[in-house]
Design a protein around this nucleic acid. Sequence first.
DNA 1: CTGTTAGCGCCTTCAG
DNA 2: CTGAAGGCGCTAACAG
Lengths: 349, 349
Amino acid sequence: MNTVKVKKKVTIKDVADHANASTSTVSMVINNKGYVSDEKRKDILHSIKKLGYVPSASARNLASNRTNNIGFILRESHFTLSEPFYTRIFLGAEFESKKHNYYVLLATISDTYKKEEDTPRLLKERNVDGIIIAGKVSGELLEEVEESGIPFVLVDYQYKSFPYISVDNRNASLEAVRYLLSKGHTEISFLGADPYHPSISERLEGFQLGMLKAGYSDTSNLVFLDEDDSPTLQTGYNLGAKLFKSGKKPTAVFCANDAMAIGFMKYAEQHKIKIPEEVAVVGFDDVEGAKFSSPPLTTIRVFKEQFGELALRYLTEILNDTGKDLSSKYERGNHMLTVPTELIVREST
Amino acid sequence: MNTVKVKKKVTIKDVADHANASTSTVSMVINNKGYVSDEKRKDILHSIKKLGYVPSASARNLASNRTNNIGFILRESHFTLSEPFYTRIFLGAEFESKKHNYYVLLATISDTYKKEEDTPRLLKERNVDGIIIAGKVSGELLEEVEESGIPFVLVDYQYKSFPYISVDNRNASLEAVRYLLSKGHTEISFLGADPYHPSISERLEGFQLGMLKAGYSDTSNLVFLDEDDSPTLQTGYNLGAKLFKSGKKPTAVFCANDAMAIGFMKYAEQHKIKIPEEVAVVGFDDVEGAKFSSPPLTTIRVFKEQFGELALRYLTEILNDTGKDLSSKYERGNHMLTVPTELIVREST
DNA sequence: CTGTTAGCGCCTTCAG
DNA sequence: CTGAAGGCGCTAACAG
């Protein structure tokens, strides 16, 4: 048995006594609710500090029927990716949660999610007030979450008309194209994969829009898509091969993401194609490796932490909905919030 | 305002009524305490399932004065490293936590920790039953945690005589040396940095021990240490330069970690030194990149997830200490648990 | 604007 | 071995 130093727990009652107030007044002060005279409030705050009072989470949760927890659900494989994309999103949420006095509970799910069986404990036990779901996950899980009635938001993924937060892919791509055009490029190729993924198709659309605005209405023979594969290094490499073997000679290539861009550059390097002299390359994401590729990659930076921040803020606003009409604030069509991006120019252009 | 589907909450009382038992009996069944007749237990379990009863965390926490949370404290910079070392440790803890019905609350702290000011909320609010601290963190934080009286354990770090879990560095290094010896190498060099870090010094000791056992008692001129720097790619590169310029001609190099090993191989590649023909290289950690280095690196795999698992299990055992003498189980000297390793042979040897 | 008073849902003695 | 009853610390009406 351990000898544990138990500083006798100080409760709300102790504070009330010390400040000559009632527990309910103290409660109001703590929760910033109702009206308390300035003087009393000051007394109470003083007593709280003096006694070192810290409210018991379980007690207030029990009484108020909240949990003060936000769930963050994520596929395990996404979490351990060496590119800490989702990790940063989580971090953003965790950081923001401090401001709103929530705790973030992380739940990882396997890639082969099975309804019921794999239901995250925090959902089963309803131990959260709201849920953030990051990245592509099983539709079954999403249905379960929706059925639970717990407010939730998707991040970097879309499904049905569920609320979500995404990168402003179209505008970002548009900016990239404008930049390339401004550097004098006109033969610009787009390399993509998994074109049915919303993010990818939006990036393609942004590309097409940018070209269209510059007067290039037909880009079809400049777009290279790998429909079967996902946008990886290898895919970029393969499409690079395909592109050059097709006889096309674009002066610039815009890739659907950094991984593909880096794969493409690898192909170029091995085939003595000089970057940026012969072909300029732009990626998308600004992954850690983009800075260290050779040459360092010009790309569109996505502010990962902001994803998490926004998601958390969105939920807290719903949860503390004081009657303001949130829908007017958020629903522009069924589109939700977008996180900003920034073009980072390095040496590949 | 949302229309929320509220499946009326089913409480322990509902279960008790349904099963013709009292709430306390139900409670006992849930918590596996006391004696309940088999028949009643079966009835109760049946009712629980039938009604879909899930105990309320806050209620039971309030009543039992526990939180059912384990805190996981980690430096933010460690968390977002592109090598998901700590992320995996966290994952291991999270995974194991499910078995013990705990939630894991992650708290990141900045690299410039300031007592009081930066104290993680979960500590301040005492919202955890136990704490896992991963990686090197500020001593101030550690003192605070100790003062709190909350049981804790360090992972991959040591401080004073606080309980910790580490890699079995000595044995692992010993194994690496034995392996190299078995391949006929005798001139084996050790490359290290930050030699005052416990892990590094233990690896060096393992190396020395291995050499000693094989009859090479003096390894001093085979050991290259960078005292000022940490074991990074760059350090490995630099020590490679130093090694070869020193005129030494080892046939094998054992590096304190993979980063250094990869840096060393980069130097070798640039200077046309063939690996493994001229120099065999062994690393330590088995980072993601080890598989993709050229050549793929022979190294010692550390089971990251097990760190988290062990840490969590250690805490739960302390927390549920039923009177068994834990100290006898854990304290071998002040040394604590170690996670196993495995030699992974690839093409660099 | 402040104090009184029920519970929130569960655990835990303590009789029976 | 089982049931009754009190209380964990706080919030939320409701009086005053």
